[in-house]
Nucleic acid binder design. Structure first.
Lengths: 205, 205
DNA sequence: TTGATGTTTGACCATCTGGTCAGTCTCAGG
DNA sequence: CCTGAGACTGACCAGATGGTCAAACATCAA
């Protein structure tokens, strides 16, 4: 479907430019809210030229989502069953906070997709994502069973990490509006969220 | 702008039908993704008839958002400074879980709006919502200072309650896809989230 | 230089979509 | 049974939008 190997340097560069521009537009407007004209303008190209590099608006969106999932799953994949349980989970939390801070547009693109019922990602969610979560949930459950961390439902633990970290990217404008000026939301969020999971996971007595 | 008092019974009824239908469409498709034809079809009315009751698509959306904020703030407003601190906060959490369970479309409508930068709600967020959060944050801070609950940042405490509870409404399809069949997401979420805040807020020794 | 391949665009099209309007139908109150 | 305000609709419109295409332009190896 998508050209796997861009032939020329110009092709690689322009495809990259378009995806970068489209990421901004899609994440801010949603799929239907975004227009090819907006994307073309943001990329500094004409609309027909954008369509020279991608077959359709749909194709641009698809290319973005495809690239997204791997980066999205990488931090969880890095959770090491052989590591120290609490440290491993806190490291995962920290990575997710950093991702929310550094890639808020990607987070919002993902949020938009799920909000609308994940029409273009269901397969990946039920497949790859679920498989990885199942795997890591088993690891966490074994840690709980061994008394190395408190007994908590591993699935909802993972959901809560997603919820807390992504909230700061997805609801950024609300967070900033409520906090007012003079705050560093992500820095504060980082230490707050780490505190939450430190207390939550402290081994039961 | 909006007719404050519908004159006839038919008017009241049809306006209600349209808002109900529009809530479903807007929350599932976003503002730009929704079309008047979809709303009219869902309401069982013709498009011109829908526009007989509301001046524009914008007006329908506006009517929904207006009604939303009050219901959204009510649970936090009910947090009683004179009550028992931990119980008050846990009661707030419980109410928010129930709202996510019972009004997921409203939650997604709100999420859509914030995700896009809250173009139609900024004023309310910076005004009403911020004021209420400021007020309740002060209450929570005083509880912390008095040692009745652990010392936590009250703003981020409130954000975390929002994040955790709304996640189950907004990301419903993801949660269900990952959990697989045979689960009651909201029931599980309720006890998990209560556990989180019980541990988090247990008074420091 | 030249031809071939890759890149870019102005002009154009079909469809969708929010919205209008003239006129018809409905029905409650007199 | 009238009548007029209220409720409703088919037909239509203008602008936006995704997408096409023939032709022009750039680049580079031979």
């Amino acid at each position: 479907m998508s050209k796997t190997a861009p032939r020329t340097r110009i092709q690689r560069q322009n495809r990259e430019t378009i995806l970068e521009a489209a990421l901004g537009v899609f994440s801010a407007q949603g799929f239907r809210g975004a227009t090819l004209d907006q994307i073309a303008a943001a990329a500094g190209l004409s609309k027909p030229n954008v369509l020279y590099y991608f077959a359709s608006k749909e194709a641009i969106h698809h290319a973005l989502l495809s690239g997204l999932l791997d980066n999205w799953l990488a931090p969880l994949r890095a959770l090491d069953p052989a590591g120290e349980p609490l440290a491993e989970i806190l490291a995962y939390v920290r990575r997710k906070v950093e991702i929310s801070r550094d890639f808020p547009r990607e987070s919002r693109l993902f949020a938009n997709e799920i909000l609308q019922g994940a029409p273009r990602m269901m397969a990946a969610i039920e497949g790859e994502l679920k498989a990885l979560v199942d795997e890591k949930a088993a690891v966490i459950r074994s840690w709980s069973a061994a008394g190395q961390i408190a007994a908590v439902d591993p699935y909802h633990l993972i959901f809560s990490i997603w919820a807390l970290t992504q909230h700061y990217a997805d609801f950024d404008v609300q967070v900033r509006a409520v906090l007012g000026p003079g705050h560093d939301p992500f820095a504060e969020a980082g230490s707050f969220i780490e505190g939450v999971f430190t207390k939550l996971l402290a081994p039961d007595p």
